[in-house]
């Protein structure tokens, strides 16, 4: 069964993060990350959402993928942190219950 979880998360010292995760049997189907943060280049956020799709929905996997994304050499982010994205994505799992 497909489950949908939403979460609004205020990044400490940062902006507001709104995340939606669709998953089925502990596998992430789709992630949507929204908010008033800044990421350069902007299009790259699509890559993160795509990278998270199809992944086993456990903290370690999510943290690895998010960490890898934020360490890309061309990436600049303000008001959003890898930690906040991981926390928000995992809070969506809680919200599904």
């Amino acid at each position: 069964m497909v489950k949908v979880g939403n979460c609004t998360y205020k990044v400490p010292n940062g902006k507001l993060l709104k995340v939606t995760v669709e998953s089925e049997n502990d596998k992430i189907e789709k992630v949507l990350i929204r908010g008033d943060f800044f990421i350069h280049p902007e299009e790259s956020l699509d890559d993160l959402e795509l990278a998270l799709s199809g992944m086993e929905y456990f903290r370690k996997n999510v943290a690895d993928t998010v960490g890898e994304f934020f360490s890309r050499s061309d990436l600049i982010a303000f008001g959003i942190t890898p930690r906040a994205v991981v926390d928000a994505v995992m809070m969506c799992k809680e919200a599904q219950k």
Partner: peptide
């Protein structure tokens, strides 16, 4: 902002009532 959800942030019906346009920027922020 580039990353925001339109319907999550903006009351589209009210925009119509108050003759206010709405659109997404290519820049981030609120």
């Amino acid at each position: 902002g580039y990353f925001q959800g339109l319907e999550e942030e903006v009351d589209l019906d009210m925009c119509k009532n108050l003759e206010t346009d709405y659109l997404r920027r290519i820049t981030g922020g609120g």
